[in-house]
Write a protein that binds this DNA or RNA. Structure first.
Lengths: 329, 329
DNA sequence: GTCTGGGCTGTAAACGATTACAAGAACGAT
DNA sequence: ATCGTTCTTGTAATCGTTTACAGCCCAGAC
């Protein structure tokens, strides 16, 4: 009553296992052979075992996407894009979540050597030497959706968040806002660090003084809301730039709780332009860092490297744009 | 330069492959044997091949969670809960998304026979004979997070959405609302059908007349917003019950666009009590259908069935509660 | 000294597929 | 009729593990 194997099919069809395998894989065979095998397969409900197959052929036809937090809507955009291109190429996509710790990421990358998948797209929050080392030594191709040093020599597809922040600040200034606060996520993360620098540069470019800045403990809604009071002290401010849509929504809640209107009293801009940005109220002006395109390009890069592991590492950067909605004047 | 196998380790350590396997699996061996093997493993950077291992032992130590739409925040709650219990039990969790079509779900369940994982938690949107048949015939245990007929004889963990809607309508009526509209998702889905019936029952229980009802094409924000105009016709209404948080948020946007306030002019209640409910503005009163608990129980059920495939199918139902926030008076 | 028994260890047979190679059949050309 | 091609099919090796079984060694009991 256990599931049939190729040997069972061969017996039922009165042919050899090799013939069954050949028919199943579309290799040339006589009309009658195909017929008999297919009947037997049908009858027994045979389904080939992917483990055995991939053990032999050395490929699993699965690809992994690893993200830090499934609750962050930026990843759903990316996930959809990746899914689309890999499934078009005949791969299954499996998603796993790593959590915020770099050690878990390293463990995941190392674990790829066990043969779970033919490749990995990883979007790491924190990057250290260990992670880079594990990526370079990984048995299967890995592409990083995020920013790692060029000298690391790994395939990456990253956003240009400083430029994105510049777009946002340009916009705010153009609308007359000059007292712009900044709510960042943890600065010890890769995106956190990039955004901190980007914001500082943007202020400088416009000759503005920093009015307030805070750092949330996480890139989450709850952390954003919790950190908002640090920002909204005595000083008057007329805009807040947030490192992420979730943080921005958190801030908007805190503003509302204090009776301040958006964008009347203070303008708010987020980053990622995730689904949450259009769902929030008021709809959030947000820096589009091209998550969908990054996902797509990352997947394509991965497929390309699977085809040809010899090619030089590429570093793709996708350009940001600003999606203006109602949270800014 | 290709990755080392157990044979390589055995050679390097000057012992047999069986011994290597034994020390790796913690079976009894002499001090010295353990020492030598570990040194060789270390030196070569050996990592056992999961495919080969699972081919032999017949288990993969992976479990799959299949959801219809990763963009629906109710699934992130569930995903987190499932992840927690399966990883505590030493399994890896892989998440795949099926899309809204039942044929894809069937294909997924059938595909489990290929040996991708030791078990499956699936949360199907649409259920038909084929799907139930494929679940019953599946090589690995499957538990359904959702509602399927009792006679199907499969393990399920489901919510009680009619009761949940009753709670919501009770609440609305208690706050003086009597002209309650209903925004459902597709009625040809399992949750859609249940919610339609639940709402009708709730109206009857309170002796209320239906004022308006609409059916979104999907359980998504965009569909909710698109369907809202059908609801908000000439007739005056003072509350809308939505089949889902995303739909509710969509409706709130449309209300705002028409200059109506929530909850002043019309109260809105959602379902699922997802993260979006607290993130939305105003924060959404929502029926908590116990997604986290359902995820947890489903995972536990799956693990239990993996241990003992003989046990009778169980049907767990988790009770709803109402999370009252600011979108109702 | 021999025998028994208990630990360790090694040899080899699985697990379920793919595929190189060889063998047989059919067919046309000479 | 014979030979050589070509086409199809079967046999068996292989992928990297685990594990049943057998063999070895050593200690203790007679």
């Amino acid at each position: 009553m256990s599931r049939p194997t190729i040997a069972g099919v061969a017996r039922a069809a009165g042919v050899s296992v090799a013939s069954v395998s050949r028919v199943l894989n579309g290799l040339p065979a006589t009309e009658e052979m195909v017929e008999r095998v297919q009947r037997a397969v049908e009858e027994l409900g045979y389904v080939p075992d992917a483990r055995a197959r991939s053990l032999k052929v050395g490929r699993t036809f699965q690809l992994t996407l690893a993200v830090a937090d499934v609750g962050n809507p930026v990843y759903v955009t990316m996930m959809r894009a990746v899914e689309e291109v890999v499934s078009a190429a005949g791969y299954r996509l499996v998603v796993t979540t790593t959590g915020p710790d770099v050690v878990d990421e390293v463990a995941l990358v190392r674990g790829m050597a066990r043969g779970y998948a033919d490749g990995l797209v990883i979007s790491p929050l924190r990057v250290d030497e260990d992670l880079i080392k594990s990526i370079r030594e990984c048995e299967v191709p890995v592409v990083v959706a995020g920013n790692v040093p060029a000298k690391a020599g790994v395939d990456t597809v990253r956003a240009n968040s400083p430029k994105g922040i510049m777009l946002a600040v340009d916009h705010l200034v153009a609308r007359g806002r000059r007292r712009i606060a900044f709510l960042n996520g943890p600065a010890d993360t890769v995106p956190g660090a990039a955004r901190a620098k980007g914001f500082a540069d943007a202020l400088k470019a416009h000759d503005l003084q920093p009015v307030a800045a805070a750092e949330a403990t996480d890139f989450t809604f709850a952390a954003g809301r919790a950190a908002a009071p640090d920002l909204l002290g005595e000083q008057h401010l007329d805009a807040v730039m947030c490192a992420n849509d979730l943080l921005a929504v958190g801030v908007m809640h805190e503003l509302a709780a204090r009776g301040l209107t958006v964008p009347g009293d203070v303008a708010v801009v987020g980053m990622d332009d995730s689904e949450l940005a259009e769902q929030s109220f008021p709809p959030l002006t947000s820096v589009n860092l091209g998550s969908a395109e990054r996902g797509r390009r990352a997947a394509e890069l991965l497929l390309a490297r699977i085809e040809d592991s010899g090619r030089a590492p590429r570093r793709i950067v996708v350009q940001p744009s600003l999606s203006v909605r109602k949270s800014t004047p």
